[in-house]
Amino acid sequence: MDFGLTDDQREIQRTARELLAERARPDRVREHAEARSTDEQLWKELSELGWPGIAIAEEHGGQGLGQIELSILCEELGRSLAPVPFLGSAMAATVIQQDGSAEQRERWLGGLASGATIGALGAAVDGTAELVIGGREADVFVLIDEDGSGRILGAEEADVTPVDSVDPTRSTARVSGAGEPVGDGGACAGLGRALVSVSSELVGVCDRALAMTVEYVKDRKQFGVPVGAYQAVSHRCAQMLLETEKARATAAFAAWTADADPEALAEAAAMAKVCASSAAREVTASAIQAHGGIGFTWEADVHWLYKRAQLDAALLGGAKRHRARLAAILAERVGAGAAA
């Protein structure tokens, strides 16, 4: 048993972190957030590096790597809050790859892998998906209906209304339209992987919020000592680490499951989303609190994390919804045990 990354995976993580530390610096993220604009230059660069196609099959022009590698990139992009439409595009590609017909895969995956096509994925209620992340610039939408089935809509056939969300580091839109069913129109198995990708992004958000907070409370002095020396503050930070590590462990397990033990993915993905959604809300809220007054200002960067956390926590269902799914799995298991 080994929870560590392989050398190759470590290398992906290292280069991604270094690149984003340089290209998605806080001041640049702020600039785009305040303008509510996508960093097209960065998206182009990431596309040239093959990021959008990391988990897309080689036959469609991707790198053919697994969910673990995709999750590594999601985590780093979450950490940096890079204003690029990566997550939505990756989730849309995941579902098309996993559940789409041969024709749909052929039509969309090449562009999604190269980054020339931008995808977005949203959950629809009564046919309409609200706050679809990356909705403004997407070329193709995957909408998931209440029964878990999906629809694919090219941008030209979709009804797209840009709506500003609280998170200005990414665009959002209301999307509806008929489109065509994904694959045979059944429930999309690719959603499990999509949940893992969001959870991984949230792990990055948590990790960054914690790191910023630790740095701040070591430095900030009140009553003559760093505030991080007070247990009311340091124990809050310890709690942030606990939540972050829970989210990290469950997301890593789910990512591994996606490739190695797909039958266990539904449960593992639900657990990952439960942990990541609640961790992200708590950890980023704690980050604001531990920053004190400055944390509540527009000037400090912690609120971008808090806002990204809120959107991602709700994306494809929050902790409560996934706990309900887990309870249903537990009930089934008890039923099966009783029947056996």
Partner: peptide, 10 residues
């Protein structure tokens, strides 16, 4: 707090 996060000790 002290050994993992490196926060100062009161």
């Amino acid at each position: 707090a002290e050994r993992v996060l490196g926060l100062p000790r009161l």
